[in-house]
Amino acid sequence: MKIRRLRRMIFGLVCLCAAILVPLTVACYAEDYPDISAVEPSLYYADRQQFFHRPGTGFVLISTDSLSSTKAALLDSGGKLDYSSVRGPTSIKFAYEAACLCGNYLYLAGNSPVTENCALIGRLDLSTGKCILNQVLNVRCDFSRDFSADDRDRVTLVTVPAGEQINAGTPAAAFLFDAAHNNGVISPQAPDPEPSSSEPEAPASSAPESSAPESSAPTSSSVNEMPADLPSKIENYDYPGPVTVEGLQSELDANGLNQNLRVFSSNQKEIKSGTIGTGHTVVVMKDGKTVSACTAVIPGDLDGSGTITDYDCRLLYEYFTQTEVGGTPTLSGPYLEAAKISDDSLADKSGRGLQTGDLLKIKKLIK
């Protein structure tokens, strides 16, 4: 634990110098979710339980039976069922594998339990508990990364046509969620057109050229693009627990330095709300300039979802299996760092990497 504290202190000092009193409290903000043992057992299944904040107040608790069903319960600020919104939990007819929050909606993704090579994407309304499902036919999916949604109903999911191989380099496809038709079929959207490299020249103007000097102010990145002035090397930063975009921004606001937060996924798509996951780039900006940047490391979050689930345990188990037989490790970079949470792993200086204690501790974090 001393090593982790020392690493946090060093990185904090670097950010302090670069930002001129960048608020260190940003990195210390952790979500205060209800104790699962205090929640009525009928509101959730035994597997893959996750809490998310609802806009305004309260929480949503999602869980799955890992076979064919997901349960979503809208809770009030005390962790009880919010009877002002719903009369009971919502049952969703597939076992979710990934979840992401966007505004007043929670998006869920998983495989259909009845149709082969069919992915399902659900959009849960966090005010009413109503869930609309969309189908993506004839695909294979990697739900462990790059599942996101934006306020234009665009959802990204890593897919390939059924029968093709999917790997770590497979990019995410974009889908336009169909909120008008439950069980509607959606297909990948065409990528945005690349800007033309042969733009026509502007006609010559007869007006005299201005003698005013060019502005030296830096041009900020366009909306949804990563800032152009990021440092060439971005260090990992260990957050103490799950954090959200809204939570970190509120910490910045409390410091009164007029700074704003921008968060980007591993494939450089901007995340404007919801949970921050391992591998996400967290950027603090002021007046269009980058003040500081780090790569988020959420202890126990090995898939970049921002929360700790059974899937993280599965990834770590696969890592042990691959390294034992001399195969290519399935975890690297910030995802490998996120798995180093046991005291033995932090104190180990022999280069052995992860310890079995990490797996045990991640299982405890799920509970």
Rank of each mutant, 00 (worst) to 15 (best):
A38L: 12
N255E: 08
A149V: 05
A72V: 00
A204H: 09
M1W: 10
V158T: 14
E225I: 04
E116I: 06
L67R: 07
D310V: 00
D146T: 07
G184Q: 02
N138V: 01
S350D: 13
I20V: 09
L302E: 05
S265A: 06
V60S: 04
S37Q: 15
V114N: 08
S37A: 10
P171T: 04
K71Q: 15
C131K: 13
T330L: 07
N134S: 09
F177Y: 09
L126S: 09
S37L: 07
T57W: 04
P200F: 13
A109T: 06
L43D: 09
H181K: 06
N258S: 03
E97F: 00
K286E: 13
L157F: 13
G88Y: 03
S198L: 11
L248V: 13
V283N: 08
A73Q: 06
N260Y: 13
A162S: 12
S42Y: 10
T275N: 08
F320E: 12
S265F: 00
M285A: 02
T128P: 08
F147K: 03
A339M: 06
C141H: 02
A109D: 05
D343K: 03
P195S: 08
T309G: 01
K289F: 10
V284Q: 15
G122I: 08
S127R: 13
E337A: 07
V139S: 08
G12M: 04
P227F: 02
T156Q: 11
S232Q: 07
Q165K: 15
N236S: 04
G306R: 01
A296E: 05
D343A: 05
Q268P: 00
V136N: 15
H181A: 01
L157C: 08
I10C: 00
R7T: 13
V86I: 07
A202G: 14
Y83C: 04
A174S: 15
F320K: 09
S187R: 10
S305L: 03
E199G: 14
D238L: 09
M9T: 14
Y319E: 04
V223Q: 14
D65R: 05
P34Y: 12
S63C: 13
A202N: 10
E214S: 14
G300I: 00
R5M: 10
P188S: 02
P218M: 07
I62D: 10
S91L: 05
T281S: 04
G122D: 09
A73S: 15
S148K: 12
G110F: 04
I20W: 11
A180T: 12
E31R: 12
L315W: 06
P213T: 08
A179W: 09
L106E: 08
H181Y: 03
T170W: 14
L106S: 14
C102F: 00
E225R: 15
G58P: 08
L120I: 14
L106H: 09
A162N: 15
N258I: 00
G241T: 02
G357E: 12
Q50C: 13
R7G: 02
L354T: 07
F52I: 07
L133G: 03
A99M: 01
A212V: 12
V136R: 10
L261N: 04
G277L: 07
A217Q: 11
T330M: 06
T219C: 15
T328C: 01
D35Q: 15
